[in-house]
Design a protein around this nucleic acid. Structure first.
Lengths: 218, 218, 218, 218
DNA sequence: TATGAATGAGCTTTCATTCAT
DNA sequence: GATGAATGAAAGCTCATTCAT
């Protein structure tokens, strides 16, 4: 699918595979630092220590490169968002704490190459291929949230788990995004606590532990 | 004294003012359709029915044009987001309904030139001037939410109104954005109801009217 | 000759003549300050307080304007170079003093709009019309020198007055030009004295008064 | 680190070095023929038989090109002005003959690309980089004259060698310039003889050999 | 196969000049 | 006549991509 009709090298030898990966890493860094439009192929090749010609033998197109970079990035992003709580780590934690952990995992994910992340974000709207990659990633994230909701099924006050997952995902994504990128002045910890409060209040039936609301947090 | 002020026309005649406005409209449409980088000055001029030279006599720069387009857009956006409930319209409505109305106003705002909106969003990160305009708009939105929270001060379960406004704003923005731009397949109404539920559950002290939760909505 | 075929206004009314002159003055100042290529018609019109259209009704062409500006400038330049010694003022002065006076008149001339002078100088080579004006001026200057040489015919050691006038003119022009434009660091007075010495030594038969050479000057 | 260094090619291959030189030659010719402002990059590239892109890979800027052309030109100019008399060739020549030789060397120098020379001369006033190059060249020329003066120190009637060098340089430069560029009608040889006469009369103490003045020359 | 020189369409911006009002 | 909006050719420069060596 990536190959078009051009004779892009299908890397078989170990060396070629490594070079390919190297180019992707270098490109990611450059995209993050200088923007998608501020980075040209010559620069990528130079930084990767190869010739322009060689670059084009690995990637038929700048677009193809971008897609690969994005794919790798999203995989790493997801890994970070999900990996830390391996689905059983929640034992013994209060619900609000669990939500807090998840929120913090999301933050963690955003901490990985945030510059590149934000550079790519626009393309999500204008480029169908980029959109597809992002949509796939979002589906995985939603599934992850859904699986956690299922874990606590009995304690939930909401009924439509899918819609809830969607809303929770949106709230988390936006707030985390804002705190990471846009508002260095506001008290970040405070906001994240509020976020966890909102989500858990929304999801869970009221219980003794949470009756006193925010007071335990602030 | 060095006279380096770009001699951008200071439009005096009615005709010139109209042309200026026309260029802005045309540019907005083009930016939305073909992206910021995909639209060039030649094209804008042609589409506006004027010459390149004329274009540059109205706007010293492509950047200046973008800023003007964005400014106008955000003004209209805000107007839509805020105008509908004139702060007294809430009488007689249940809290969840009020939140629902606000959410729907936000949707309305997003319905206005969504394509352009999303094109510009990225620049929020890379261009300081664009960031400023967006930040000003966000501040106004936060203030609006804050003023509503103050209206219901006695019924609120949350304490830190500012942090709450921030979180609510984030949740609304992202979810609304998602439903508008990215996921045409999911049941939009359902999601918006959930959003309203999440927000009102988070904000307000539990009361009889809300005891039965989602059941009234779904 | 200046009119081409265009309907350039032939100024009959006093007002029009004044405006024309005013434009020329303004243009001269701008050319001097911002260079020939750095000044555009819009600017000239604005500075002259008229519209672009009006400007083009006075001058069919930017080139025509330049020529007029140059013509006026050279007239004033010449006037300064020649006027001060009205051909009888030399009585009672030693020969070296006379040469010194002439040199100083040349300096005076260069002091008038030197910026404009140097801006135009290049065109002397590339534009035939400009060359003609400069050549005419040079012919007048040579004639002036020649007439002075004739005045002192009996005291001269040189025989070919025309060639001598040419050489003297060249030496004066270049040295004066250099001291005015290029070398602010060198001792200007010293150089001018040397110049006067060179010229008078060259022109005049040795006489008692000059026997002790430079000593009287320094 | 910002990598804003214009990626001008650092020519490694022989071919590239040749092309670079070729561009410089072509540009010099074009500048001479059509003027600095009358020559554009497209034209230079075309005349050099390369593409615009190629041109800009050799020279980051039109300005850079100009400077290189000028530098080369001045080197050749100086070489011609100085090389011929290797400081010992003067043996056995009369003083006036020596001066005559030097004047003729200067003429020789002006014979090399006079058109380009005159095109650049103006920039000496407006462009600091061009001024620097010219100033450096002038300093070398002055030094050359000074070294010759020192050679004849005992025979000189002038005392301030530096000021004398300056004046002599000016006289030579201007007169030679005039005979080369501006007055094809006057008897050039005659003028140059006068110039040599003026300079030697000025510089040297009167001696028997020169007593009879111009008579030997005319 | 690797290199990097070369291509050239395309972009932003300027400005002398015209002409409808 | 006067105005200044409009024209559009032309300039400097960039960069994804190709291809001779």
């Amino acid at each position: 699918m990536t190959d078009k009709r051009k004779n892009t090298r299908v890397p078989k030898q170990k060396r070629a595979v490594e070079t390919r990966r190297h180019i992707i890493q270098v490109a990611k860094a450059l995209f993050a630092r200088k923007g998608l439009h501020g980075t040209n192929s010559r620069e990528i090749a130079a930084e990767a220590g190869i010739s322009v010609g060689a670059f084009y033998s690995y990637f038929s197109d700048k677009k193809v490169l971008l897609l690969e970079v994005l794919k790798l990035h999203l995989e790493q992003f997801l890994l970070r968002a999900v990996s830390q709580e391996k689905m059983g780590v929640f034992d013994g934690l209060g619900k609000k704490e669990i939500i807090g952990n998840i929120v913090r995992s999301a933050i963690d994910a955003y901490d990985h190459s945030p510059e590149f992340h934000r550079e790519t974000l626009v393309l999500r709207y204008s480029d169908p291929d980029v959109k597809r990659l992002y949509d796939e990633a979002k589906a995985l994230e939603l599934n992850y949230i859904l699986s956690i909701l299922n874990l606590f099924r009995d304690d939930l006050r909401i009924e439509n788990l899918e819609a809830a997952a969607f809303v929770v995902h949106g709230a988390m994504e936006r707030t985390v995004h804002s705190t990471q990128f846009l508002t260095p002045d506001i008290n970040r910890e405070l906001v994240l606590d509020e976020l966890a409060d909102m989500i858990s209040t929304y999801l869970f039936k009221p219980s003794q532990e949470d009756t006193d609301g925010l007071s335990t947090l602030s």
